Amino acid sequence: MSRIAARRRVTRITVGEPPRRRADFLAAEEPLEIRVGGKALTVTMRTPGSDVELAAGFLVSEGVVHSADEFATARYCDGAVTTGDDGVSTNTYNVLDVALAPGVAPPDPSIERNFYTTSSCGVCGKASIDAVATVSRYTVDEDPLRIDPATLAGFPDALRAGQAVFERTGGLHAAALFDGGTGEMLVLREDVGRHNAVDKVIGWALLNDRLPARGCVLMVSGRASFELAQKALMAGIPMLAAVSAPSSLAAELASEAGLTLVGFLRGPSMVVYSREDRLALDGPSAIG
């Protein structure tokens, strides 16, 4: 199986000191081709691991599947092999074929990627912005989630504590799904791509029959983009929280859809951009 971290010799240089040569670890990045029914749909650069969840979450984000019973099977293609110097062929585990359940419509051709999806931007290669703004089967506007800000403030530390690969490489994004009622972390996934980490989390929810993810909070380690807000909505998640800033389009989408959007969640402070009624606030708001 592919590695999630790659070992490499490096030279560390500090001005005024002798150079130091040592082994270091880098976050692994390899292509994954996702096929549906044998037909290529997309190629994304990702950190190997949780590939079935990644494919499942991607299909949820694109509106292809909405529940576990619509996702039949997934298997690595035996033909995806590489031949080493010794002449021995090994499976690269970089091509995954998904079979949908009988009666489930195949992906619309409009969402097919025309070129590689980069690990930094999942929007690249989409036919149009209309393909991004897929209408979700779920609505979050009336989700009764209500959470204490003190509970929410603890999520970034829990996220960081669970990033095993990040501790070794320093080069991965993370996403996690929390139960808004208990504060329990339900699942955490890491990847070189922000959108991949979120798709892995959503894929976990799909495969565990937890969609829509009512009463949950999606926590991400970076910024909150339009696409991440859209992915939360597609999975029926009523709150998206990020340690960094949201984009203007993410805030606009959140306001229109009834998604609670929280940014700059660091320590005891945070900024709420939409649906602040889901946070249990004490006393009147200060005006400044």
Score class of each variant (00 low, 15 high):
Ser255Met: 12
Pro144Thr: 05
Pro144Tyr: 04
Met1Tyr: 06
Glu276Tyr: 03
Asp86Asn: 13
Leu218Gln: 01
Ile4Leu: 06
Leu240Phe: 05
Pro144Arg: 01
Asp24Thr: 13
Thr118Pro: 13
Arg210Val: 03
Tyr93Arg: 08
Val60Phe: 05
Ile13Phe: 06
Val43Arg: 15
Ala250Lys: 06
Glu190Tyr: 02
Leu186Tyr: 04
Glu17Met: 08
Lys231Val: 08
Arg266Cys: 07
Thr90His: 09
Lys200Trp: 03
Phe58Ile: 10
Ala251Lys: 13
Asp78Asn: 03
Pro268Val: 07
Arg21Asp: 07
Leu261Thr: 06
Leu253Gly: 04
Leu54Gly: 12
Gly183Trp: 08
Val198Glu: 05
Glu142Pro: 00
Thr83Trp: 03
Thr14Glu: 09
Met1His: 09
Lys200Ser: 05
Phe166Lys: 11
Arg22Phe: 12
Gly180Glu: 12
Ala127Pro: 02
Ala242Met: 02
Val135Thr: 14
Gly154Glu: 04
Tyr138Cys: 04
Ala245Ile: 11
Ile34Gly: 07
Phe264Ile: 02
Ala68Ile: 04
Ala254Pro: 08
Ala251Ser: 14
Ser221Ile: 01
Lys231Gln: 14
Thr118Arg: 14
Trp204Ile: 00
Asn94Pro: 00
Asp157Gln: 10
Pro156Thr: 01
Ala280Lys: 12
Ser89Pro: 04
Ala251Glu: 15
Arg46His: 10
Ala257Cys: 11
Val217Ile: 05
Gly171Lys: 14
Gly154Asp: 01
Asp282Pro: 01
Asn114Met: 11
Ala105Ile: 07
Cys124Tyr: 11
Ala40Thr: 14
Ser2Gly: 06
Ser67Met: 04
His195Gln: 11
Met185His: 00
Val198Asn: 04
Glu252Cys: 09
Ile34Lys: 02
Gly87Pro: 10
Gly49Leu: 10
Arg168Tyr: 14
Ala176Tyr: 02
Val123Ile: 15
Ala175Met: 06
Val95Pro: 01
Pro48Asp: 12
Arg214Gln: 09
Ser110Arg: 14
Ala99Met: 07
Ala131Phe: 04
Arg9Gly: 01
Asp97Gly: 05
Gly122Ala: 14
Gly171Thr: 06
Ala27Met: 11
Tyr138Lys: 05
Ser225Cys: 03
Ser255Arg: 15
